[in-house]
Design a protein around this nucleic acid. Structure first.
Lengths: 347, 347
DNA sequence: ATCACCCGTGGGACCGCTCCCACGCGGCAT
DNA sequence: ATGCCGCGTGGGAGCGGTCCCACGGGTGAT
């Protein structure tokens, strides 16, 4: 905000403008504009002349000028709440974001990375984003009690969420089939002959955690197996939480022979706890995690885990957002992508 | 007409302009502009009136209009080459980027995330970025043979690199003290009574890899210990490369009792190989990695590792870039931040 | 031949801001 | 009193696009 050096960094020569192109091509500004924007109402002659002039001058349209005139910015915000960054382990974001990038690549939209550092910055975001700064918003993670999405909606800012806040999520969003993934994991355990399968859930106010728990229950139910509440322990997506939950499960059910944890990080905590309790993995107790994160590949034993198609999720988010920017209310509002069980040594 | 009709941001309503603020405050546009840009040449009276009007109207300056007038964009590009994303393990980026964000926060600069997907997109980037699209560029990773930085330099685009291409790097950059970090690691091994310390290097065309090797040698030299070439094996920053290098070291030097690997991922490969060869870690062979990544905390045994101050590195990059944008050639061009040895069970 | 029509076209009028020039008006020295 | 200085201040002139209206000339119907 300080009036530092008002000297614009015009170290290089000034770029050619649309006017220069028009002059060079011997046509009017309007015609050049039409060519650039692919309007069909231009004669082949003019078009050729303009295209040559553009090439010769190395002309590139000025985004700011265009934005000002069109009231569009040709950019979308990628919002990653910092608090979540730590909690939800990075591979999630670094997997999904390249997908978004790929999905946006042909549209000419730029990605603005927005990392609010605290609650205050986060809540102020709605105003910030709606102030003609972006054409759309991708919220990379939302909590169930989050109201930012609603405010963006009121402000008519096209928005797509990664994950949903609840089953009644009114906004467009993309998620993986948490329920199906969990179900597959538990089916796998049962198919391998495990009899007593416990689960370590995430915080149950999170929709993904609830869905994974549901998937666990569904698999047990369809197998006619025990799905008693004493086999369910709640974790918090941290390693320490995973350990604590595992300890609790062992206390309640010393004979259990398998555990499905709703995240790899919790699963790794569970493995540590099992080992501390003298159990071997997978001989005594099989363990499956969720996310197929780096951790899964590197702990001992390598973790069987449910993989989310992060890249595809990112692409889907981009597509959904482009749809909404193009025209409100077109097509479906919810994309659920299938997971894949990656089998390793732990189960 | 009546300035009273204006109500703060209702959906769809056009945002108030600077003109509206001027009218409401009963001053000219120039004065409003001065207030917004913190010019001192405004009377307290006018300033107060303007500030009130801004608050009442919920006015936010239009970035596009400002850009157009100032020929600045108030945004910088964050370039993360995709190929590197996979290779260089994600924690690096997800650690540094929040730092950049924090360092940029007060400047009002936005971060444009640019993820070129292939070589073609990457090389085309110089033109793209120089076309008045950004005020500066942060290159999150460069290879030694990379020419993009040079082209940006020719185009007079302020640029800061994470890491340097070679010791003669002409561009501003930030890195951690790779040499010092490696030296500390090896000193630690020697101090714990290890006698024969091998090292697994990164690809030696990378400057960081060379520096880490130098640090290793320096520590051995100052201790008067053996620094023979047969204790050096080259890896490629992958787990498989780490395993292969470890195998090679064991072959050449079956009696070695410590290894310093230039990355955690390679260290984890080394641990696997050691175990396969019947060696216990750390009893028979102590292992230290570099990066203090997630992997380090989760493998068995947890890895002693050299931590890079990623957050601070990000901040430093932001600061360097802001300097260069403000005025070319001010201050130092190279920031080297200290590392920290995180001691865990592996050494 | 006359008219209506359409197609391609040029250019004026913005979009909302910053920059800068010129101007009014007090206070101070003359 | 008269000049001069300098501090706010208003507002014109862009910045580089898009949008849209009006216009010339070719075409086909009458």
């Amino acid at each position: 905000m300080s009036p530092a050096e008002s000297h614009p960094s015009t170290a290089g020569t000034r770029r050619p403008t649309l006017n220069a192109v028009a002059a060079r091509a011997g046509v009017g500004r309007g015609t050049v504009s039409r060519v650039i924007n692919g309007s069909p109402k231009v004669s082949a002659r003019s078009r050729a002349a303009v295209e040559r002039a553009i090439a010769e001058l190395g002309y590139v349209p000025n985004r700011a000028a265009r934005s000002l005139a069109t009231r569009r910015t040709d950019s979308v915000a990628l919002v990653v709440p910092e608090a979540e960054t730590r909690l939800f382990t990075e591979p999630y974001f670094s997997g999904i974001i390249p997908g978004v990038s790929a999905g946006l690549a042909d549209s000419g939209l730029q990605m603005l990375l927005v990392l609010p550092r605290d609650e205050k910055e986060y809540t102020r975001l709605a105003d910030y984003l709606s102030a003609q700064r972006v054409d759309g918003v991708l919220l990379m993670s939302v909590r169930s009690e989050d109201t930012l999405p609603d405010r963006l909606r009121e402000l008519a800012v096209p928005t797509v969420l990664a994950g949903r806040r609840s089953r009644e999520e009114p906004l467009r969003h993309v998620r993986c089939d948490n329920r199906g993934g969990a179900r597959d994991a538990v089916r796998h355990l049962l198919a391998r002959g495990r009899a007593t399968v416990g689960t370590i859930t995430g915080p149950l106010h999170m929709d993904a955690a609830r869905d994974r728990l549901d998937g666990y229950r569904e698999a047990l139910r369809e197998a006619g197996a025990d799905a008693g509440e004493e086999l369910v322990a709640q974790g918090d997506f941290t390693e320490a939480g995973g350990r604590a939950a595992m300890r609790e499960l062992l206390r309640r059910h010393p004979a259990l022979d398998a555990v499905f944890a709703a995240s790899d990080v919790m699963a790794s905590g569970a493995v540590l706890e099992l080992r501390a309790a003298g159990r071997r993995v997978p001989e005594d107790v099989a363990v499956i995690g969720f996310d197929d994160s780096i951790v899964a590949r590197h702990i001992d034993p390598p973790l069987t885990s449910v993989r989310q198609p992060l890249q595809e999720m990112g692409r889907a988010m981009a597509r959904l957002l482009l749809d909404e920017i193009a025209g409100p209310d077109s097509g479906r509002h919810e994309v659920v992508l299938p997971t894949e069980l990656i089998v390793r040594a732990s189960a």
